[in-house]
Design a protein around this nucleic acid. Sequence first.
DNA 1: AATAACTTTCAAATATATTTGAAAGTTCAG
DNA 2: CTGAACTTTCAAATATATTTGAAAGTTATT
Lengths: 168, 168
Amino acid sequence: MKLPEAKDKFMQAWGTLGSSWGINRTMAQVHALLLISPDPLSAEDIMEELKISRGNANMNVRALIDWGLVSKTFKSGERKEFFSAEKDIWKVATQVMKERRKRELEPVLKLLHELSNVEGDKKDKNIKAFNDSINGIKGVVSKADKTIETIIKADESWFVGSFLKLMK
Amino acid sequence: MKLPEAKDKFMQAWGTLGSSWGINRTMAQVHALLLISPDPLSAEDIMEELKISRGNANMNVRALIDWGLVSKTFKSGERKEFFSAEKDIWKVATQVMKERRKRELEPVLKLLHELSNVEGDKKDKNIKAFNDSINGIKGVVSKADKTIETIIKADESWFVGSFLKLMK
DNA sequence: AATAACTTTCAAATATATTTGAAAGTTCAG
DNA sequence: CTGAACTTTCAAATATATTTGAAAGTTATT
């Protein structure tokens, strides 16, 4: 397969994967494009490669910066901004985990805590079923939360090298 | 907080969480409803509780069955179907991981493999950047894939009890 | 201070995803 | 069989999310 075709398939696939994980398709495609570019790209480059408007390019690049996956760079003598993506995929993965943990897991945990004890007769089977569910979910969600925290703090070599051995 | 309010907040939150993880909001709400119901519910019950149409209720219940999270049950003397959700949250979590792995991770891995070696001069920096990206991603994705596989095979007590200790 | 080179914003347009509801399909009791 | 009780389907309607592009904003240069 030639490079242009491969690039295209990759950006497509990254976009699809992103959108099934709650990340806007175009944002994921911009990310893919920057990931495989050896040099930083300008807004124009992005608009052109992905055939998207200036506004769209701008918004999605901002979002990626907000997620900590992309940063601005400057070329001497050029006034416009260039963008480049973090190339270390392990860092990308931990950064995404960190953000999603903060944005989604933490609020859910907070709510689950609030829902932990409803008023009323603990013998009522509706109340009992509810409390049991909430507690079960709370257990698994907070375990997942702590696991992610540990993974984020661990370094790549640990993950790559030891994880599977430890799990045996 | 009283039960009806708590139920409502929970179904709401589960719906929101679902939709940021690529699961249709209503499907997640139906799931939440069944999770906290001590007894199986009929299509009518679901329609009424969530104020959704028959078709919608039917489609989402089917999808949940398809995901292995909900099953049909019957009441003697009743002709209609009742539905109940798997109550063990650990099983729910592993089931979801299993499905997403199959539906999303595996196809991406297959593609990454195909993209692994593009034709052309390995010294060309565009080709080099592309190959490096793809290989890096392939490494992390397949590691994640294997990790999920291991977690799925492990049992709950392992996860709950030993995971954090092992990670230290 | 005026202009040029750029970036940001956001209301309107478009595209995508979900929901509805009525018709068609199925199953079962009589 | 037939009709009643139920489930499924799917085209059209609705709701939600994304995209556009032109105007407004910003910043550097002369």
